[in-house]
């Protein structure tokens, strides 16, 4: 294992606010301006309040919490898709976010075209993709379908290809949001094995999942989010049992 020395992800006092009930027309906005900005055009909602978190290189962290607790929001802040309204987030090394599998896929392109497009979107160079191509296809077990348009893929095949591309991008920090849930049993096992392999290689993993058993086998550390705040941070098994306890008392 690598040294748990350098910080890979550092979040300090992160705050993220969303604006709800948004007006989409210039007219409404103008009327509002003319009327002297009376009333509020929108409602504000704090999705993350004061989240501080430090992840060392090589750590495997599971981010847990109920629906709407802000997990995906935090991941998007770390990957740079969203910008915080307060606090700072900093990362070291290349970060690849599997915020959603196949986000960069285009339905009307063949699997092959999509491998290149998605690989480039995830930050690979042309040469890297050329070198990895066969390995990507092999891992995905897509076989001859690689030249078929992806809209004709089954959702499992779609996932396989997308996941395969993502694990081949070779980032230092891996963000994974809810993607292990799809795919059949053998492929899921293969994915988990691959993720564990990445962890053993000293990659930093930051995993969001509702599958608590799975998360407990893959990750060492657990972080529990509730209403946009970190309420627990420690050994993954402790956090899992705490989340289970809380879920039970709620129902």
């Amino acid at each position: 294992m690598t040294s748990h020395g350098n910080v890979a992800i550092s979040c300090v006092g992160l705050r993220k606010q969303f604006v709800l009930r948004h007006t989409r027309s210039l007219k409404e906005a103008l009327v509002w301006l003319v009327k002297g900005r009376k009333g509020d055009l929108s409602k504000k909602f704090l999705a993350l309040k004061d989240v501080s978190l430090e992840v060392k290189q090589g750590e495997t962290v599971a981010l847990m919490g109920l629906n709407g607790s802000g997990k995906s929001t935090l991941l998007k802040l770390i990957s740079g898709v969203l910008q915080p309204d307060g606090g700072t987030v900093r990362t070291r090394g290349r970060v690849a976010g599997l915020i959603e599998v196949g986000a960069g896929f285009h339905h009307d392109l063949s699997g092959r075209d999509n491998v290149y497009l998605n690989g480039a979107i995830l930050g690979m160079t042309e040469k890297q993709i050329d070198n990895m191509f066969d390995s990507i296809v092999e891992f995905s077990e897509i076989g001859e379908f690689i030249d078929t348009e992806v809209k004709f893929y089954s959702s499992g095949m779609y996932l396989r290809l997308a996941f395969s591309i993502a694990v081949h991008t070779d980032p230092e920090v891996f963000l994974i949001d809810e993607i292990l849930a799809v795919g059949d049993e053998p492929f899921q096992r293969k994915c988990i094995a691959k993720i564990k392999e990445l962890a053993d290689l000293g990659k930093t993993l930051f995993v969001v999942s509702h599958d608590l058993d799975l998360v407990a086998t893959v990750c060492e550390r657990g972080v529990l989010l509730e209403h946009g705040q970190v309420i627990m941070d420690g050994d993954v098994h402790d956090v899992v049992s705490e989340l289970r306890r809380r879920s039970l008392t709620e129902t």
Partner: peptide, 23 residues
């Protein structure tokens, strides 16, 4: 570039597009 902490998502605009010619 990988040995410092950087703010994610802060690009240099059109200059980055030049760097990303392949994409």
């Amino acid at each position: 570039q990988s040995d410092q902490l950087v703010k994610p998502g802060s690009g240099r605009g059109l200059l980055d597009v030049y760097g990303d010619r392949f994409l």
